[in-house]
Computed example of a mutant assay.
Amino acid sequence: MKGFIIDLDGTIYKNYQIIDGAREAIELLKKNNLPFVFLSNRGNISRKDCLKKLNQIGIDCRIEDVILASTIAARFFQQRKEESIWILGDEGLKEELIDHQVNLASKPEQADWLLITLHEQLTYEDLNNAFRAVLNGARIAVTNHDLIFPREDGPCIDVGGLIAAITATTGAKVQYSFGKPSPFMRDAALQQLQLEATDCVVIGDGLSTDMQLGIINEMKTAFVLSGVASVEDLHKANITPLFMGNTILDVVKDILEGVKHEYH
């Protein structure tokens, strides 16, 4: 493997608390001059904020090494300056859109697009404004479709819950989804690494995100058990990763040594 595409939530940290071995795994890649990019479906934070949090937990990387679903969405709408966006999500997404000079609607009824991401401070008014945006003709785009994300105190509802609320009440469908395993994320990661898909390995804890990104694009896959999904979940999904370990450090060591483990 020449390049590493690495998930964040459940792989590097949980609720921004570093997972054992994560720092050492990244340093091991650097020691072996192996390029990596952090590719996350996080859409409710900005890339600058994510980089700051990574640095605070001891992960030394550049902003170019971090690609979020919020970044991909911002790049997409940056090219559509005549169209205005209403956000259902946390302030981090708004910050990323502003950094990319995206046109934000002043009222939900005036929006051309509703962009949905995780909203951990959600109020009824937030949800209702998003509902009204779509009723008035806004098309729906989402940072990702994740149903669950891992936190130290247990699994939490992700963007999928908000998407379901809006699509169920309006009858509208999602037009664009920017997160893994979309081509948007694949292309951004490969462009950053300057590698072909077959030269890369995806490391993560997500079955429908990380593992599917690898499977769809003929990348190698490495599954970590430090997130939400279990070995039983892998079997139910009929997914067999090339590498598997309890932590990212386990799988990085195995990849470098060419060791494969079966978990039952």
Rank of each mutant, 00 (worst) to 15 (best):
N55Q: 14
C200K: 12
D250P: 05
K53M: 13
L93I: 13
L28H: 14
I87S: 01
A73D: 07
G204P: 07
G160Y: 01
N129D: 12
G227W: 11
D254R: 11
L147P: 03
L88F: 03
V159Y: 03
D65E: 08
S177V: 06
R23G: 10
A189F: 10
V174C: 02
N15S: 06
D187E: 12
Q110M: 10
Y176E: 03
E91G: 02
T170N: 02
V37L: 04
D49A: 12
F4T: 00
D65I: 01
M211S: 11
E95T: 12
L213G: 00
E232M: 05
F77P: 06
Q212C: 12
E83P: 01
V174R: 02
S230Y: 06
G21K: 09
V202I: 10
G92M: 14
P155M: 10
P35M: 09
N136R: 15
K236T: 14
P181N: 01
I63D: 14
Q191S: 01
D205N: 15
G154F: 04
T123Q: 04
F77D: 04
S230F: 09
H145T: 07
K48F: 11
Y176F: 04
S230I: 13
G21E: 13
E91W: 03
N238W: 06
F36G: 03
R23T: 03
G10C: 08
E125W: 00
D199H: 09
H145Y: 07
G160N: 08
I215Y: 06
V251Q: 14
K48C: 09
D65V: 04
A189Q: 12
